[in-house]
């Protein structure tokens, strides 16, 4: 029977070996948690090593808070069908993400839903072919 220690080591090695689609370590994001944030696009930086989507979120009191979401770099987003103009400043969107562990307003984007209901999957193009 596999010991707990061995199981934990295997799990860690597996995480290390599969998360690496991201250019950097993923340790700061909590992949056991998901947040859904609604806001207005401030900037969409189509850059390497990662693209960043910055959005402004209005709270109940009318104040705004900036949230940032990491996505893959340009060629991987292109492979996911997300182009530089796919997210425009001023546009209202809903982002589902794995948040930062420390609670600051940022995360790794899982999906982005546009106002017309279109869902963008920024990780689609990362999956290497398996055949």
């Amino acid at each position: 029977m596999m010991t707990f220690r061995r199981a934990a080591l295997l799990a860690a090695a597996f995480v290390l070996s599969t998360q690496a689609f991201a250019h950097h370590s993923f340790a700061m994001f909590d992949r056991n948690k998901e947040v859904t944030i609604k806001g207005t696009v401030k900037a969409f930086n189509y850059t390497n090593p990662h693209s960043w989507l910055d959005i402004l979120v209005t709270d109940e009191k009318g104040g705004t808070k900036e949230w940032s979401f990491e996505m893959e770099g340009p060629s991987s987003l292109m492979r996911s069908g997300i182009k530089p103009g796919s997210l425009k400043p001023g546009e209202k969107i809903t982002v589902k993400a794995w948040p930062l562990r420390d609670g600051r307003p940022a995360g790794a984007a899982i999906s982005i839903t546009k106002e017309d209901g279109t869902v963008l999957d920024p990780r689609k193009g990362l999956r290497p072919p398996t055949t």
Partner: peptide, 29 residues
């Protein structure tokens, strides 16, 4: 996909990942 091409990868342009306490962290705008 014919639209795919290799462009210059300017890694430091918008790299928000930073080193912190032996691990990786993110800097926000």
């Amino acid at each position: 996909d014919p639209s795919l091409r290799i462009d210059h990868w300017a890694c430091e342009e918008d790299n928000r990942a930073v080193f912190k306490d032996g691990s990786t962290d993110i800097v926000l705008p």
